[in-house]
Design a protein around this nucleic acid. Structure first.
Lengths: 194, 194
DNA sequence: CTCATATTAGTACCAAGTGCTAATAGCGGG
DNA sequence: CCCGCTATTAGCACTTGGTACTAATATGAG
């Protein structure tokens, strides 16, 4: 034995970990054992074959790409909505939403949740944000659940305007407040909703 | 011929693009032609075989993970930056950034570009947005390129505060203005920047 | 020496191809 | 109607990087 089996297997593990693209043949050369030994080692350590390893890496990327894009449609999940009046959504902060360094949620996600909720609560074909004022009161961390409550504070149908206030909390503590001045197309006259 | 060759090849291209994990056999079923035809098509279009495709995707991820610098924390691409003073980024609005109905960019993307630029221009380990005022002046459509210019307007190191104004334009027309009050950790005293 | 574990060797087989040759289909033009 | 051309299909040998399995050989411990 060139080296105790255990040592070799440990080395093998880390070797594959930091270069998943290595073949059994290359590994056999690296450790001075036969290809079969490498294969037995992989079995014991339940390390998949080259192609499977590569596929996993690729799939991971692919998923990441798919998920990093969808800052789309409504951010967060709407759990209650009363059109033209109020709405509530929840948003679970995941690792991809935070700064790497400090795990604090990036501002635009909180804004996105609040803004898309403000759009949703408008009972409108087209609702656009015109102006907005935001306050980020407390940092939000990965793993926390943000509850956003939107309330329509003022409606001015003739002016194509509506005002929405959104308050976001984590465990009852207010973390974010935003006010939104919205532009609405159809001038939904007071009494004819649906 | 089920379909003109050209059409099939175009479809093939996009089919592989949005699922690189598909085999020739599956493709042959999808298009109702023989496996050989798929292979000839791949030759002509110089699309590599499944394993090579997967490997490329995996290599890309792998490289990305290794570098993974805080550059990718910025929404949009920074094309010029002068720390603690000003910065410019561009953001190409793609179909996934707009409302389906009217193809108008969703507010939070413009905010995300501006806010992350404001964070980037801070010469800080930790910079957080405290308050913000936004004006969405003109709708932005898919296909347009948004140029955001950030300018640090005021620095109050002793108070851990800095103020940034971001103006975003499309073809010289201002579409968005945001002001950001930022919290900064280290109180970078006026005269000791490296 | 013997037994167990470790290692090596060898064979058949698989997936998803490449590379090459050859047959066939379908159509347009003269 | 036949010729020529492109498109399509088929078939076979070969490649990589394996799996699955069997069998032979080391090698060290008791």
């Amino acid at each position: 034995m060139r080296k105790p089996k255990k040592e070799r297997q440990a080395a093998l593990k880390s070797s594959i970990k930091d270069n998943p693209f290595v073949t059994d043949e290359e590994l056999s050369a690296e450790f001075g054992v036969s290809v079969q030994t490498i294969r037995l080692d992989r079995m014991e350590l339940s390390i998949p074959e080259l192609r499977e390893r590569i596929k996993h890496v690729a799939e991971k990327t692919f998923d990441d790409e798919v998920k990093s894009l969808p800052i789309d449609e409504v951010i967060g999940e709407i759990i209650d909505i009363e059109l033209d009046n109020k709405a509530i959504s929840i948003f679970d902060v995941k690792p991809e939403h935070v700064f790497q360094r400090n795990r604090i949620a990036r501002g635009h996600h909180l804004f996105a949740q609040a803004n898309s909720l403000a759009v949703a609560v408008m009972n409108e074909e087209l609702a656009l944000t015109v102006k907005s004022e935001l306050q980020f009161l407390k940092p939000v961390k990965a793993g926390q659940r943000v509850v956003a409550k939107a309330q329509v504070t003022d409606r001015q149908p003739h002016k194509h305007r509506a005002f929405v206030k959104v308050v976001s909390t984590v465990d009852q503590a207010v973390v974010f407040i935003g006010t939104f001045e919205m532009y609405r197309t159809t001038e939904q006259s007071e009494g004819d909703n649906t």
